[in-house]
Amino acid sequence: MTVRVQEEDFDVAAEITVLRDGDKRVGAVALFLGTVRDMNENANIETITLEHYPGMTEKSLTRIVEEAQRRFSIYGATVIHRIGALRPLDQIVLVAVKSAHRGDAFDACRFIIDYLETEAPFWKKEKTPQGARWVDARESDGEARRRWARVGDASADELDR
């Protein structure tokens, strides 16, 4: 498992090579790449600044990946989240998962990004021509996470506190 929080950009191809690491059991790698849009709620975005809570962030991301490893048959995962000032087109977040088959790779990748967006302590502040504003959490993020919470699943309850 690789979990990193960094200001620097990342190279997706290089990260996938490191994740695969000559592992011949792997038949599938699924990835999610989040990037900065130029528009949000009808305002043009000049820059966004990503703040996080050092100490809790790494712990939270590690816990989410560990939960994905319990739920799905995967061989490893990489999560990289950038912080600091970013501009439209910049890469923000990478989630990559390796597995024997695509089903588990896709599911685990989606599980990780859905939980990350509701659990990991990151906050976005947008700078627009009208001024700076903190981005509000979207209700759809909570719904995306809840689809993973199965009845009677204690570990989901733990993450859903």
């Binding site: 967006e117 509000d136 959490a137």
Partner: peptide, 8 residues
């Protein structure tokens, strides 16, 4: 203390 998170 913090607002609901908005990462990703």
């Amino acid at each position: 203390f913090f607002p609901p998170v908005t990462g990703g």
